[in-house]
């Protein structure tokens, strides 16, 4: 049984389709990174999943059952926008969570407050955006959750604390927690997630295991002296999934035979030819600029 199960989730705001028949599963103990441009529907999907907004259609389950207040005893959610109480102090927020959660770990909370260098006497309105985010993260992890739904968890944080958050996510997953998180930091997702889903215009355009998605695909990049060059029928080669031309640069996304393709390009007398491993950023950019859905599990 998947910890998080989303089946044909659709959310419509009047004429606007925010999420379009999204189906996504997150297995127990796995870390799923949700990527997508702004307005892709990531936050809406999270809110539907947690019952903060009503979906237009679809079935949603956490640990095999619809979300109830009891679900939140073991689930921590970090919203995209900070929703802490500005007039309350950091300490009062910790006290609030202590009173609310049976499994709140005060020692862990202190540890996290120290980790993020938080002054517990300060009111939230006196904190920077990054510090306020850090408070929300500390609160989320202080209940030692089994499920974490994090919407842009490192938003506003400096690179050092971004790494800290990443470590917390990896540590939680190592301890058996299931994590679903969104981020614009593709490097973060690549480092922490074992599974990736990409949303575009509310639609799932790519989903799968990160290693499988990367697979053996490589990028063969050729830089020519002039704009006017012909790829010489490379586009029709079955080994080439996609060709992108940008001025004097040609990139061929190659499923197999990258060495042979590179040799073919060398014959066109470019200035240089290089072969790269595919990164998640390449996969993401390919997915959001390409309408065709793909699956890494195929």
């Amino acid at each position: 049984m998947n910890t998080i199960s989303i089946r044909n989730l659709t959310k419509r705001y009047g004429e606007q389709l925010a999420v379009d028949a999204l189906s996504l599963d997150v297995a127990p103990g796995s870390v799923c990174g949700l990527l997508g441009p702004n307005g892709a529907g990531k936050s809406t999907a999270f809110k539907c999943l947690l019952g903060l907004i009503r979906p237009t259609a679809g079935d949603l389950a956490i640990s095999g059952a619809p979300v109830t207040p009891a679900t939140f005893e073991t689930l921590a959610y970090l919203p995209e926008k900070n929703t802490l109480y500005e007039w309350m102090t950091v300490k009062e927020h910790f006290e609030l969570c202590r009173r609310t959660y049976a499994r709140f770990d005060a020692a862990r909370a202190s540890e996290l407050a120290a980790l993020f260098k938080l002054d517990s006497r300060k009111k939230i309105k006196r904190l920077s955006k990054g510090q306020a985010t850090a408070v929300a993260i500390a609160l989320a992890f202080a209940i030692r959750p089994e499920i974490l739904v994090l919407d842009e968890p490192s938003s506003g944080l400096d690179p050092i604390f971004q790494r800290t958050v990443l470590d917390l996510i990896i540590d939680a997953a190592a301890g058996g927690a299931t994590v679903l998180f969104s981020s614009h930091q593709i490097g973060q997702v690549e480092r922490a997630a074992d599974r990736v889903a990409v949303l575009r215009n509310g639609k799932l355009v790519l989903e799968g295991n990160l290693d499988t998605l990367k697979g053996d695909e490589k990028i063969v990049e050729a830089v020519f002296e002039m704009d006017a060059f012909s790829p010489n029928g490379l586009a029709s080669d079955p080994r080439v999934r996609r060709i992108v031309r940008n001025g004097r640069i040609l990139r061929a996304y190659v499923r197999s035979g990258s060495t042979e393709i590179a040799a073919e390009l060398e014959a066109l007398h470019p200035k240089s030819v290089s072969v790269y491993d595919l990164t998640l950023e390449d996969i993401f950019l390919g997915a959001v600029s390409d309408a065709a859905p793909a699956s890494g599990d195929a």
């Binding site: 207040p69 679900t71 959610y77 929703t83 802490l84 609310t100």
Partner: peptide
């Protein structure tokens, strides 16, 4: 504050 208040047990 719904994202915080409404996601409590």
């Amino acid at each position: 504050r719904g994202g915080f208040a409404f996601t409590k047990p």
